[in-house]
Design a protein around this nucleic acid. Structure first.
Length: 657
RNA sequence: GCGCCCAUAGCUCAGCUGGAUAGAGCAACGGACUUCUAAUCCGUAGGUCGGAGGUUCGAAUCCUCCUGGGCGUACCA
């Protein structure tokens, strides 16, 4: 049962005789802002003042008179300017709880009209090691898929792999020039990874060497410009002078940043140049940039050798990232990478041209869209296709194959404009009846508030991140276990627990963040024993199991005759309502695709209520057996909701920790 | 230049489909273990929700302007 949905339905009946359009008013029925107002409140009487020309309190009374909630609520009360406060009846709550006890879905109803969703997430480049930037797309997309599916929707999760781009040109080039056969025979994945990094390194050196003089020149120009502006006399026009001063400050800021960036580049280059073997190879492969592009072009044109190498490399590269997915417990229904759409691209472009949606401009094929200054380019001057082309082909394929109601793209916010254009173009192209949404998210920052990098300035690898989280979890688990008189866990067990706690902490840390905002990455915060963390939730779960173990409670059996639930202590009632609100929390998640609304619920509502309950309502030492069994069932329901909630976040529970 | 986003407690962040006194964790201070895991809990203190207007019965939330930051901006993804 979704209580809020049920109340809205009841209000709908009451309101429909008073107004034409009830739906905006129904949105104003919400959980109470304060428990002293009851459990829910309806705020819809106030805004009807004008429309009905009556005092809101009178309107509230009219609504209550028509409202049929006697079975579930106490008599509604009118408060303040016209709030309608609703308090659930205790016996109704227990009735719902009993139903939840016997329900695998814990009382969460399936949607009446399932939709088909395509959820596009993770989408790493298979040729490169996954890095910290992939964590958000992966876990947010996975959670959204799980939640939508749990609610009864038809979900197709799709990993739109980057498997056809320049990166493969790099590997092919590297394989041809730098591979060590013995290493490749022994461990092809590691060798390919080394090759990729090595080619990247050479290209870095060359690019940096080429870029530095230009950037220094630009820096000098900037310095001149600053001097020039400083020497200018004030014009006397206050506004103009203020703006000039502001612009100057900004320019100086940029200048300092550029200075820092150049110094960083110089350091990096100096380090690389110290390696004479490397520099010899750099010299030998001075044209590597164009050579790599040529390998890519050859691949796309169907060159036999390159295609054969690509077929050889692809599964190996894919295995490399599978390790990460396995640890993260991430799966996909389909995995159609860029290469999958390769032979559709030419048709997409010609179709746009035929329909008059695209035209030539400066040698490129462009789609000009209302409200955008720059066009969306679907074919370059040199004839090559771009990711906009692939994305359009992907939409076409998905529409043909699954006819989805919605397509969700879990991609970082910097690509917002790309998706705005893509969706606009797709609409023109005929995809009007599908909800296309960019599930945008912010950047993972380092402690300095800048995008998370290692000390040397490299991106942070995802596997290393996982290792570190798990190893820190191991320290916590071990320290705690060692404190006991007789430690509970073997080393193997400690490792198993730390893996679940560490990875869970990492995922929860990301998912508990409002997806739109950047956040500062911190192992300490992520694995904190207190606060809104996976560890805290896992601990709450484990404590419940501990009670059952300690009291030798057969919870299965208790579930079967769960009639005697009672709510005598306020903490019991609060916990009971929190348990019943699980369905609402899941609905909230799907409203604007925000996983953090689930973590908020689990922590703020459920776990907090449980803590209070735990402190005030002993189970094993309850005054009588009825109370004991009732409380045990509340504990059990709490644990089951935590477990189900965490499962939807892709996080496991542990029986002991 | 244009476009998008952000600014909430000392720190990290919730709250933003408008609702009654703005929340959490950390840090600080004071309490609670012969007690179901103290890996915990309870309490105290901490705020002109960047600033100024506006809409509304009601604004952290919506609109306008200002300040300070980030990101994106014709052939990378």
């Amino acid at each position: 049962m979704n209580i809020l949905a049920e109340l809205r339905q009841r209000f709908d009946s009451a309101l429909s005789s008073m107004v034409e359009e009830t739906s905006p008013l129904l949105d104003m029925i919400r959980p109470a802002t304060d428990s002293k107002f009851g459990d829910y409140q309806a705020n819809c009487a106030m805004p009807l003042k004008k429309q009905l020309g009556k005092n809101p309190r009178e309107i509230a009374q009219d609504i209550i008179d028509k409202l049929d909630v006697a079975d579930m609520c106490e008599t509604p009360e009118i408060a303040g300017p016209g709030f309608i406060n609703l308090k659930l009846k205790d016996d109704w709550i227990t009735q719902q709880l009993v139903a939840s006890v016997g329900d695998d879905r814990l009382g969460v109803p399936k949607v009446a009209t399932p939709k088909t969703y395509v959820v596009d997430y993770s989408s790493p480049n298979v040729a490169k090691p996954m890095h910290v930037g992939h964590i958000r797309s992966t876990v947010i997309g996975d959670t959204l898929s799980r939640v939508l599916r749990f609610l009864g929707h038809n979900v197709i999760s799709d990993n739109h792999l980057g498997d056809w781009g320049t990166q493969f040109g790099m590997i092919i080039y590297g394989y041809k020039h730098f591979r060590e056969d013995a290493a490749y025979q022994q461990n092809p994945v590691a060798e390919l990874s080394r090759i990729y990094r090595f080619v990247r390194k050479i290209m870095d050196v060359l690019e940096t060497q080429a870029a530095l003089p230009k950037r220094k020149l630009a820096l000098a120009d900037q310095a001149d410009e600053i001097e020039n502006r400083k020497s200018k006399e004030p014009t006397g026009d206050k506004a103009a002078d203020k703006k000039a001063a502001k612009d100057l400050r900004k320019l100086e800021g940029q200048h300092n940043n550029a200075k820092g960036a150049i110094a960083e580049l110089e350091n990096k280059l100096a380090d690389l140049q110290a390696d004479s073997d490397l520099m010899a190879l750099v010299k030998e492969h001075a044209k590597i940039n164009t050579a790599v592009l040529q390998e890519t072009v050859k691949l796309h044109e169907g060159d036999e050798e390159n295609l054969k190498l690509w077929h050889e490399f692809l599964p190996k590269c894919r295995d490399e990232i599978q390790r990460v997915y396995d640890r993260l417990d991430i799966t996909f229904d389909v995995e159609y990478g860029e290469s999958f759409y390769h032979d559709r691209l030419a048709n997409v472009v010609s179709d746009f041209e035929k329909q008059g949606l695209a035209k030539q401009s400066e040698g490129a094929t462009c789609v000009f869209l209302d409200g955008f200054k720059a066009p969306m380019i679907i074919r370059k001057q040199d004839g090559a296709f771009l990711y906009a082309t692939t994305d359009l082909a992907t939409i076409q394929y998905r529409m043909e194959t699954w006819k989805p109601d919605a397509m969700l793209y879990v991609v970082d916010h910097r690509q917002g404009e790309h998706f705005d254009k893509l969706f606009a173009a797709a609409k023109l192209w005929g995809c009007a009846d599908v909800e296309m949404k960019h599930i945008s998210f912010g950047t993972v920052m380092g402690p300095d508030g800048k995008p998370y990098k290692t000390r040397s300035g490299d991106t942070v690898g995802l596997e290393g991140l996982l290792d570190e989280a798990v190893s820190r979890a191991l320290t916590i688990v071990s320290d705690n276990d060692d404190k006991k008189e007789t430690p509970d866990f073997s080393d193997a067990k400690r490792n198993t627990i730390s893996e679940l706690v560490g990875i869970g902490g990492l995922k929860y840390g990301d998912l508990s963040q409002n997806r739109e905002t950047d956040y500062i990455f911190s192992y300490e915060k992520m694995l904190a024993l207190n606060g809104n963390t996976a560890t805290y939730m896992q601990y709450a779960y484990a404590r419940v199991q501990s009670i059952f173990r300690r009291g030798s409670i057969d919870i299965e059996q208790l579930r079967e005759n769960a009639s005697g639930l009672q709510l005598n202590h306020p903490a019991e009632r609060t916990l009971a309502v929190a348990i019943l609100r699980f369905a609402e929390a899941l609905d909230d998640v799907t409203f604007d695709y925000r996983p953090n609304l689930l973590t908020n619920y689990l922590f703020e509502e459920l776990a907090k209520s449980y803590s209070t309950f735990f402190a005030n309502c002993p189970v094993l030492k309850a005054e009588d057996d009825v109370t004991k069994e009732s409380r045990a069932l509340l504990c059990d329901l709490t644990a089951r909701v935590i477990q189900q909630g965490l499962q939807l976040l892709g996080i496991s529970t542990v029986e002991k920790m």
